[in-house]
Amino acid sequence: MHAFLRILALAVALAATPTAAADLSLLNVSYDPTRELYREVNAAFAAQWKQAHGDTLTIRQSHGGSGKQARSVIDGLQADVVTLALSYDIDGLHENGNLVPADWQQRLPDNSAPYTSTIVFLVRKGNPKQLKDWDDLVREDVRVITPNPKTSGGARWNYLAAWGQAKRKSGSDEAAREFVSRLYRNVPVLDTGARGATTTFVERGQGDVLLAWENEALLALHSIGRGNFEIVVPSVSILAEPTVSIVDQVVDRRGTRAVAEAYLRFLYTRQGQEIAARHHYRPRDAEVAARHAADFPALELFTVDAAFGGWHRAHQDHFADGASFDRIYVPAR
């Protein structure tokens, strides 16, 4: 696999070697559900770049599970920019091979997360189990579909959303642990990724509720399951911040730093924010957000930094070997 990736990286690098100064290319390594978003962003940015600089810019995109994508870049995939589901995965690029500097997240506004999302419930039409808020998910007659947080970055947001809201309500980690344990006892299938969980819920008819990113839930609502599903927005949830960064070692080698930085900055412009909102991500820009207020109901949101002391702490406390997620299935001896 690694060898294959190296060859792929080499092929991409060769294909991307500029033949004339006016031909530029970027590789954006992203996670699963951003395919449509970046298709539109790429077209808009390439047009803008051509107008301003006259260069023809080709932007390639690659999608997969966020953790797997980060590993591909660590293993040598020549990504100019990464746009991943959680900052922990980009931190990995710093820790393994120093591909980005330690302070990468301070280089762009809003923690380098140009758009956000949150975790909501997707339920079947008519909400037959009458699920209104988090507490309904731990009822004994309810089956919850969510992927395995060990293999899915998206599922880690689900897990932390459930934990965080329980802790806010009760004030104690013990009560939160009890709530999350009960929740996962209602999970009959742990898929390896978010798209797999959506398939299990939508197409295989498993479960009463799918814990999903808001953008995925809206996408499911508008495309695959038109008329068969509803979104339930809980009273409180987590602020999901998918982060973006240039990969310094790659852009410096390929001489694409300027265009890669401009590409990421474009995400923060009115036009970029508008595209993100159209693809169901919550925009940061207040004016764009106001225009799309109807699509994004207001709810109380907490951040990973505030509730869990950042991703590294969250990882150690919840997803590392023998941490809280493992203890749901194997009680500590």
Partner: peptide, 29 residues
């Protein structure tokens, strides 16, 4: 992985455990 349900202790296969550990960058484990 598609058909197993992947429940820890019940229907989780060893290759999945390996992939899960790799995804969390626990290469040694």
């Amino acid at each position: 992985i598609f058909i197993a349900g992947n429940m820890p202790m019940v229907s989780e296969i060893a290759p999945l455990l390996i992939v899960a550990k790799r995804d969390l960058r626990d290469y040694g484990g």
